[in-house]
Amino acid sequence: MTSPLPTLFAAATAANDGTVTLTAADVVVLLMLVGSIVFFGGAAVLALGWAFRNGQFENFQQGAASIFGPDEPIGEPTDSFPGQRPDATPPRNLDQSRPEPDECRAG
């Protein structure tokens, strides 16, 4: 397989009327630039598409609660200075008297 670089040099030189000759470094810069756009842009589009298909954006309330578990439930502080133990008062955004959406019950 022949290298695509000579073709790229020729095309780029022709495009500017031959007044400016591209160097190998110029071509590397262009390839990096185009590569970065394709790489980062493509990855972002793929990630967004996957997230939508996978239901990651369907229930934000539940997503926020996903870091809690039965051993470290919502409402329990999990850190203190050695020898201190803070009270376990329920957080204010978990008013137990207020009805919550079906999919947002907090333990």
Binding site: G55, E58, I74, G107
Partner: peptide, 18 residues
């Protein structure tokens, strides 16, 4: 799927906690 998570269940049993 995200809608089936158990971390938001209202009642936590001791067994779940352990």
């Amino acid at each position: 799927r995200v809608t089936e998570m158990s971390t938001t269940d209202a009642v936590i049993s001791e067994a779940d906690r352990v």
